[in-house]
Design a protein around this nucleic acid. Structure first.
Lengths: 193, 193
DNA sequence: ACCTGAACACCGTTCAAGT
DNA sequence: ACCTGAACACCGTTCAAGT
């Protein structure tokens, strides 16, 4: 209930903001290069701060990961609202799903963190994951109401399909090259003629 | 070419076999409980041997994982041969695929190790992963020849679908409960009416 | 042929002391 | 309010010495 850790916030003092931003910038590069398990010590060193400073700003690895991908998630949700306004429910769902797969494979390990965040109520991610699930749920329902997608598919299952496709993308460079094909394989079966 | 590490083999000396077996037994329990990243020191301690003994028998974590799941893979391949003898190619493919998903989610992290082993030629796993892929390829081709599965699906893509479904099973207990439903979602789209 | 355990390296995490 | 870096714990991996 009350043991959910506080989300990372940008500090008010000038040196604090500088360090916060430097850590975020280096963290993005490190996660990109080495995945979600990249060394926090290396990130701190790369940002020119002591480890304690990193922990001061980001209490857990999850909160740092959350902060590095917050913008991406925001963009994804905005994209969802945009495509929802169109008049092709199936196209909108597929379009957004594709973007969601790309986002969820921003770096190696993110899909797992997302899947975990959706289940763990005490996670920094929980709210974000729920928002992402809900965004997909709205698009899914619209496509189902239009009779274009099998009606028994649940929002949670759509989330699972997305993170699974993202996981394959993370793990297999060859599959990542052809995202359209991957998407077709993973969610192609849910459409109705 | 020649830098592929040697597979773990059961020692000839009596005390060696005893330790080897003890390590394997504890490793199975540990992987089951904590996933593929379980502490090797704890496994060694649990087996009543020094860490060096564990490394003496299993040069890498991968080789230990391989040894703990070798029987399961063998059983899966045998199951493939068995179902291939029937006269329902689509049923055989689905049956085997379901077993493959169960095997690939024996413990948390195995799906990732398998996906990695298939790509890395120097892995302990490479031969095993190839055998698994080939087993699926034979069943897939039969189902395709019978016109029951879309013809453009490749063996590699089937492997990816299997490990992705296994990954979801590993990550989400709820999904793991209803394997039939999961399988339907992941490979239901490949069948032809 | 196999075992032991100390030794080294690396990393996560905390915290008292500082500014 | 924020920073520092030493301190502790834990783990992976190697290897000289032993039987």
């Amino acid at each position: 209930m009350e043991n959910a850790p506080p989300p990372a916030r940008r500090p008010v003092r000038a040196d604090g903001r500088r360090n916060y931003d430097a850590i975020l910038r280096v963290a993005r590069e490190s996660f990109q290069a080495k995945g979600s398990t990249a060394s926090l010590e290396e990130i701190a060193a790369g940002a020119g701060v002591a480890v304690g400073t990193l922990y001061g700003h980001f209490a857990t690895r999850e909160s740092l990961i959350e902060a590095t991908t917050r913008d991406g998630l925001t963009a994804l949700l905005a994209h969802g609202e945009r495509v929802a306004a169109g008049d092709d429910p199936l196209g909108a769902l597929m379009d957004w799903t594709c973007e969601a797969v790309l986002f969820s494979s921003t770096f190696r390990g993110l899909a797992e963190v997302l899947a975990h965040g959706l289940r763990d109520e005490d996670s920094h991610w929980h709210a974000g994951c729920l928002a992402m699930e809900r965004c997909g749920a709205d698009l899914l329902r619209a496509a189902q109401d239009a009779g274009r997608v099998r009606g028994d598919l649940t929002p949670r299952e759509l989330f699972n399909l997305i993170s699974a496709a993202a996981w394959v993308r993370e793990a297999s460079p060859a599959a990542a090259d052809d995202s359209g094909r991957l998407l077709e394989l993973f969610v192609g079966g849910i459409a109705r003629p």
